[in-house]
Computed example of a mutant assay.
Amino acid sequence: MSRRVLCLRHGQTLWNVERRFQGHTDIPLDETGMAQAARAASMLTTLRPELIVSSNLQRAAATAQALAQLTGLDVAVDEDLRERGGGEWEGLTREEIAAGWPREFAAWEAPGGEDVGDVAKRVSAAVRRWAEQISPDGLLVVVSHGAAIRLGIAMLMGLPQQHWPALGSLGNCSWSVLEEGRKGWRLLEHNAGTLPEPVQSDDDPDATPA
């Protein structure tokens, strides 16, 4: 038996479409985002999550609520799961950022924004806290944001910071699945949009037996 954590990115917003840096700005889901949240909820409810926890930003909370309505679970809210703060870049398009801050754009370090290491620490700590509240074979659904999820996963897996970019971004209402193994957390699915399937393999003693 092992705990699993499913990290679900929120649905689409208008600022996603316009390629604006959202950060801590509290942008709602657009019509497409609401439909994406409903679709994801219809699939994920079959996994019978024990607990749902969401970022305090409304785009994540609304995505979580779609799943809560089908599962009958309440949604816990944790501010530590919110997106990376974008400082002076929030509300700006990538083109505007590149033009105004070429050096910072190349490093993707927003003036006045959050350091990636700080984001990774707060998100991974939050996931660990909530994972402790589920049963040994339970499923926790964490509804958060693209950068927050990616950075939190990287730290949970113990990846050196120079290797964090090796994890790709998540699409709207896509998810990643972590499992707690004997040697820590490992990534089972990343940027998925279909239900995870059991892995049958001779590769590792923690893999699902044939």
Rank of each mutant, 00 (worst) to 15 (best):
M1H: 13
R3P: 04
R4E: 12
L8M: 12
L8E: 06
H10S: 12
H10M: 10
G11N: 07
G11H: 11
Q12P: 01
Q12H: 09
Q12W: 08
T13Y: 11
T13Q: 13
T13M: 12
T13P: 07
L14W: 06
W15P: 06
W15C: 11
N16E: 09
N16S: 05
N16M: 06
R19Q: 10
R20Y: 08
R20K: 15
F21S: 09
G23W: 09
H24L: 14
L29R: 08
D30W: 06
A35R: 12
A37M: 05
A38E: 14
A38I: 09
R39D: 13
R39F: 00
S42Q: 06
T45I: 01
T46V: 01
E50Q: 15
L51D: 05
I52Y: 05
V53D: 03
S54I: 06
N56H: 13
Q58I: 15
Q58S: 15
A60C: 06
A61S: 08
A61W: 14
A62W: 13
A64G: 07
Q65M: 06
L67P: 10
A68W: 11
L70G: 05
L70F: 05
L70V: 07
E79L: 04
D80W: 10
D80Q: 14
E83T: 04
G86R: 09
E88L: 14
E90L: 09
L92S: 13
L92N: 09
E95C: 02
E96S: 12
I97T: 03
A99R: 15
G100C: 06
P102D: 08
P102N: 10
E104H: 02
F105V: 01
A106D: 12
W108N: 15
W108C: 09
W108D: 15
P111F: 01
P111W: 02
G113H: 14
G113I: 13
G113R: 10
D115T: 04
D115H: 04
D118G: 09
A125Y: 01
V127E: 11
V127L: 04
R129T: 15
W130E: 02
W130M: 04
Q133T: 15
Q133P: 03
I134K: 08
S135R: 14
G138K: 08
V141Y: 03
V143E: 03
A147Q: 09
A148L: 01
R150P: 05
L151Q: 13
G152E: 07
G152Q: 10
G152L: 00
I153Y: 00
A154G: 14
A154T: 04
M155L: 15
L156H: 07
G158R: 12
L159K: 03
P160H: 11
H163N: 01
W164G: 00
P165F: 03
A166V: 10
S169Y: 08
G171L: 03
G171Q: 02
C173V: 05
S174M: 01
E179F: 00
G181F: 08
R182S: 15
K183G: 07
G184Q: 06
G184V: 11
R186S: 11
L188R: 13
L188N: 01
E189M: 02
A192Q: 02
G193D: 08
G193I: 01
T194M: 04
T194I: 09
L195V: 11
E197I: 04
E197A: 10
P198W: 05
D203S: 12
D204E: 12
T208D: 13
T208R: 01
P209L: 08
P209K: 01
A210Y: 14
